[in-house]
Simulated scan of single mutants.
Amino acid sequence: MALDPADLTICCKESGIFTVVKCRKKNSALKEYLTAYYNVPAFYEECKMEYLKEREEFIKTGIPTKKRLQKLPTST
């Protein structure tokens, strides 16, 4: 089965509450594709280093990365 994430999106939108049953094969294919990257040592190390960097920043600031990167409201 060729992987196209758009196919899974369309399937989910069309299936409604039956998504789990109707889109199982497409979801499994996408999961297999994505998890395969964690078996690539260079990619794993890159993710690990990014996590450790974000963790270090959180320990210093107490602010999660997601919150830190959001624009602050301006007073106008």
Rank of each mutant, 00 (worst) to 15 (best):
T76C: 15
E54P: 00
D7P: 01
C47W: 04
T74G: 07
A42Y: 03
K31Y: 04
Y44F: 10
P64G: 02
L72R: 13
T65K: 14
L52D: 08
T61D: 03
C11I: 02
P5L: 08
E32A: 15
L3I: 15
T9V: 12
K31V: 12
Y44L: 09
K13A: 11
K48V: 03
P73K: 05
D7C: 00
K48N: 10
C11L: 04
T19K: 12
L3P: 00
Y37H: 13
C47P: 00
L52H: 00
T61Y: 02
D7Y: 00
A36D: 15
I17A: 11
K48I: 00
Q70P: 00
F18M: 11
K22G: 01
I10T: 15
E32M: 06
L34G: 04
G16I: 03
E56H: 10
I17M: 06
Q70R: 08
R24L: 11
C11F: 02
A29F: 03
R55V: 04
C12V: 15
A2W: 04
E57Q: 11
Q70D: 12
K25R: 09
L34E: 12
C23W: 01
E45P: 01
G16E: 03
S75Q: 10
N27D: 10
V20L: 14
K13C: 11
F18C: 04
T76A: 14
E57V: 02
E50P: 00
E32T: 13
F43P: 01
L34A: 08
A2D: 12
P5N: 12
G62N: 07
L52S: 04
T76E: 15
L3Y: 12
L34D: 07
N39A: 14
T19R: 13
A42L: 06
T65F: 07
N27F: 06
D4R: 12
D7E: 09
P41D: 09
L52T: 00
N27M: 11
L34S: 06
I17E: 09
K25W: 03
R55Y: 09
Y44K: 13
T19H: 06
S75I: 11
C11G: 02
L52K: 04
L52Q: 07
L72Q: 15
D4K: 14
L30K: 10
T74Y: 08
K26E: 14
M49L: 06
Y33S: 10
E32L: 07
T76Q: 12
A29I: 09
K67R: 13
K66Q: 06
I59S: 05
Y33E: 11
C11E: 03
C23K: 01
T74D: 13
